[in-house]
């Protein structure tokens, strides 16, 4: 039994890897993506909306299967772990872009006007006025999203990635004790989400301290 618990706990590393890498992909790629939504060209805005609606309109499991099974059939073989990361990463990109978009919309138009009135360059307006406020506005939501991503990582178990849920399933098949083992897995997820919440609060307060409330 202890051996089983130990193996499950060891799988935490894979779970965290999945979460962090997909999340990082989302954080980074969402930035250029959200620029599309702010474009003056309606075509680009439409492209953004279409992309986001399609990616978020289909369950994660379906994307996962399309990338893992579907691609393989088209002779593009993607192993389980990368497939999971790509699937979760693409979904994270679309979701974070929406979060960024919400944050941008929350910035009062008067902020831009003040920047222009002060003859600040467009680049400076973005860097010194918009970006800090954006950071402040979105960090709680992004933190919440990461906690969600942690839970979504469990899906990777379905295509055989050796994270917590997969290892738990294996152990249950070998040794029984389904309730204990799955409950333990559940507790692991719960315990992991607590530091994430604490971390997000401390990051949020550090950001808000530097940039005082308007």
């Amino acid at each position: 039994m202890e051996e089983a618990l130990g193996l499950i706990a060891a799988a935490t590393g894979i779970t965290l890897l999945l979460t962090v890498v997909s999340g990082a992909i989302g954080l980074v790629l969402a930035a250029p993506l959200v620029l599309l939504s702010q474009s003056r060209q309606p075509v680009l805005r439409l492209a953004y909306t279409t992309f986001v609606h399609i990616v978020r309109g289909v369950p994660a499991l379906v994307w996962l299967f399309i990338i893992f099974f579907g691609m393989a059939e088209l002779n593009v073989v993607i192993p389980a772990m990368p497939a999971a990361i790509v699937a979760l990463g693409v979904i994270a990109t679309a979701s974070m872009a929406e979060i960024y978009r919400g944050g941008l919309n929350a910035i009062h138009f008067g902020q831009y006007e003040a920047g222009w009135a002060l003859s600040l360059s467009r680049f400076s307006v973005t860097k010194d006025i918009v970006f800090p406020q954006l950071l402040r506005a979105v960090s709680p939501t992004v933190a919440t999203y990461f906690v969600g991503l942690l839970k979504d990582s469990a899906l990777a178990s379905i295509i055989g990635v050796g994270e917590i849920t997969y290892v738990t399933g294996q152990q249950v098949e070998l040794h029984g004790n389904g309730l204990t083992l799955y409950a333990f897995a559940g507790v692991l997820y719960l315990v992991m989400s607590i530091p994430l919440g604490v971390l997000s609060r401390s990051v949020h307060s550090r950001i808000t301290r530097r940039y005082a409330v308007v």
Binding site: K151, A154, I158, T165, G178, L179, Y182, A185
Partner: peptide
């Protein structure tokens, strides 16, 4: 509430379908 929200739905599914039989 915290357990229902904090545990992945997939794990909840397994808890009910494959966990409960063990008791």
């Amino acid at each position: 509430v915290e357990v229902g929200r904090g545990i992945p739905i997939l794990v909840l599914l397994f808890v009910v379908y494959q966990g409960l039989p063990s008791v």
